[in-house]
Design a protein around this nucleic acid. Structure first.
Length: 420
RNA sequence: GCGAUUGUAGCUCAGUUGGUUAGAGCGCCGGUUUGUGGUACCGGAGGUCGGGGGUUCGAGACCCCUCAAUCGCCCCA
């Protein structure tokens, strides 16, 4: 018979284990705690939606829609897509579930997202994000609140705590749609004059996505980027005031920020505030948390014009910055020296756990091996069960520095004695 | 889609200018000690050296193809 070959994991997916999984959980738990402080309401969203939810909001023709989504037909012939982001689904729910009645609505969620991309450091095909959005708030205070929450989250995660340069808030404004369009035209005119000197990629970008030339990594482009027209020259008075209110709000809240006039968004529905918390500790994937104001999105989904702003952050990248988090060890390990008292081993281990003590039971292999394993796990105490004069004897050996108060549990446990 | 680097035991890795039967540590399994002590010692299992082809008397090593992983480019919702 042919040997059965173990299926390989799917490219870009990951099995997270041990200290890395603890770090992942720590990020999520911290996010949950902080979002409650800012009174963001928890939402759970479907992992797939009709494809049009994403194609209409992101733009039919963009590469991300045409090449980087996991789309498929279900058995009814409907085109569905695994969510590549949270924002579009939340916007859809806002329109279909009557959430307008709660406006301005602050919501938060987290979970897996799917993008068909080439995996690299901190970048996977199934990845996970935390996400926060404020829908129905046109005021710059909403942007400020989101940014202050993001800043507190990163600080509570300890990112940059002992290392002030580890992550910095880069902030920019894209203005309203008129300012943005004027800026875009000026950029195209400026770069067209020097087109031949630009990198090949940027020559393509000139037609498709001229704003992206600004954050090109190619040295040939950087010299021209430095002297390129800046958004500030094109901002309306209203847009200037909006950005001013955001920055003064950040200052009032004590959040450090730094203006980055080259920071742009890839999609057209973004307006005004754009921001990224950037680190240099994760290789090429520098953005740890990013977002902006997307006042244009709701209309593309058939809703009334609705101002909104939000951010998302990759849990894997945050977990990498947090570093490995130790798995909590057992406080007590119960070693059954004699199999005749296995039932008492099961019973007393359960009693310990019910009283809130983290406990493990070791009852396989030779007694020697059981003790070896127990000692290696470095519990605070080892509880050894053996047979003595027809009864179950237990000895508690304190192995760690900390006291383990389990005498009460042992005293109230009803020992059943060894099996015959 | 493009590029660079790396694939040897379950894991982390050695393996000399190509030379007999491919090694270590950890983990796993078994054994030694009948003991208030143990994390020690001894032993064992486990590898078609990612896969395929080629060069050679001889390939884990050199060449070609392929697959995968990692990192980067593109893209980034």
């Amino acid at each position: 018979m042919a040997k059965i070959e173990t299926p390989r994991p799917i490219r870009g997916t990951q099995d997270i284990f041990g200290a890395e999984a603890e770090a992942f959980a720590h990020v999520v738990e911290t996010f949950e705690r902080v979002r409650r402080l800012y009174r963001f309401r928890r939402v759970e969203m479907p992992v797939f939606e009709k494809t049009e939810v994403f194609s209409r909001s992101i733009g039919e023709t963009t590469d991300v829609v045409s090449k980087e989504m996991y789309s498929f037909e279900d058995r009814g012939g409907e085109s569905l897509t695994l969510r590549p982001e949270f924002t579009a689904g939340i916007a859809r729910a806002y329109l279909t579930d009557g959430w307008q009645q709660y406006a301005p609505l602050k919501v938060a969620t987290h979970g897996p997202l799917f993008r068909y991309e080439r995996p690299q450091k901190g970048r996977y095909r199934q990845f996970h994000q935390i996400d926060a959005e404020i829908i129905g708030a046109a005021e710059p205070q909403a942007d400020v609140e989101l940014l202050v929450m993001a800043d507190q989250l990163l600080k509570e995660l300890g990112i940059g705590a002992n290392d002030p340069g580890a992550v910095t808030l880069n902030l920019n404004t894209l203005g309203d749609s008129d300012s943005r369009e004027a800026w875009r035209s000026a950029l195209v005119a400026y770069f067209r004059d020097v087109k031949a000197s630009l990198s090949e990629d940027s020559q393509d970008r000139l037609e498709k996505n001229p704003l992206r030339i600004l954050d090109s990594k190619d040295e040939r482009d950087k010299a021209f980027v430095a002297d390129a027209p800046q958004i500030d020259q094109f901002l309306s008075g209203e847009a200037q005031d909006f950005f001013g209110a955001v920055t003064s709000g950040l200052d009032a809240a004590g959040v450090a920020w730094s203006r980055n006039p080259a920071l742009v968004r890839g999609l057209d529905y973004y307006r005004h505030t754009a921001f990224e918390f950037i680190t240099d500790r994760l290789g090429a994937q520098g953005t740890v948390l990013g977002g902006g104001r997307y006042d244009g999105l709701m209309e593309s989904l058939g809703g009334a014009p609705t101002p909104a702003v939000g951010w998302a952050a990759g849990i894997e990248r945050l977990a990498m910055l947090v570093g490995d988090v130790d798995e909590a060890g057992a406080e007590v390990i119960v070693v059954v020296e004699n199999d005749a008292v296995l039932q008492d081993g099961i019973g007393v281990t359960s009693a310990l756990r019910r009283s809130g003590v983290a406990a493990d039971l070791l009852a396989s292999g030779s007694p020697r091996k059981r003790f070896d394993k127990a000692v290696k796990q470095e519990p605070k105490a080892i509880l050894a069960l053996s047979v003595d004069n027809g009864a179950t004897a237990h000895r508690l050996r304190i192995t760690g520095g900390d006291e383990v108060a389990i005498e009460g549990v042992l005293a109230s446990y009803d020992w059943r004695g060894p099996a015959e």
